[in-house]
Amino acid sequence: MAQHADAVIQIDQLYKEYLTDAGPVPVLKDVRMNVAAGEFLAIMGPSGSGKSTFMNILGCLDVATSGSYFLNNRDVGNLSKDELAHLRNQVIGFVFQGFNLLPRASIEDNIALPLIYRGTPRSERLKLANQMLTKVGLASHRSSRPNQISGGQQQRVAIARALVNRPRLILADEPTGNLDTATSKEIMALFTELNERDGITIVLVTHESDIAAYAQRLVRLADGRIVYDGPLASAAAPHLESTV
């Protein structure tokens, strides 16, 4: 497989099977996908299409059964658990549907958390965390707890946490799934800004076509295969909505 200096994700002939009592169940079949640096990509597909599994593999939280996955030009298949953890820490920023903040830690500490695992000293951690807080517009909430702020604000905190290690790639799994329309728009505007201004590659999984509309490129999964991969404009919107 050709390696491109500016490729963030290179996937070829990727298969994933889950072993159940009834035998192996294939979830991803012959998936091939390249993502270049600076792209904004949306992955869509109906429930059971394998998009969550795909996302987990992209995020190095799960490993494929066969096929190759190069993240940032490193072959993920050959990495140990600790090396995968290191890669998640250095290269990827995660944004989840349920925010996944630590409920007992302050906003500031939540954002600084990834820095602990790369050994950044405390004063530096807090400095960077506060920079990110300012970036997402929540500087005044630094010592609040997650349950003291709104859902939209919590998702901003999660984005700040994803950004604190200056990742090349942000993986967002249904980031607006728990938010109302207005807040969703704000969050998507923030993603767009990060993509356009800071050049961060964003891969987004969503059900909603108007959320996917913020991306430049669309990948549609159905039954474990990529059925569409191309510019967003040519994908008919009504057709997309019917798959939800």
């Binding site: 250095q90 996944n100 602990i116 695992y117």
Partner: peptide, 13 residues
């Protein structure tokens, strides 16, 4: 634990 692992904690941490 899952969150910590996702953002880069290894088993040792």
């Amino acid at each position: 634990i899952g969150i910590r692992m996702a953002i880069g904690a290894c088993g040792r941490d």
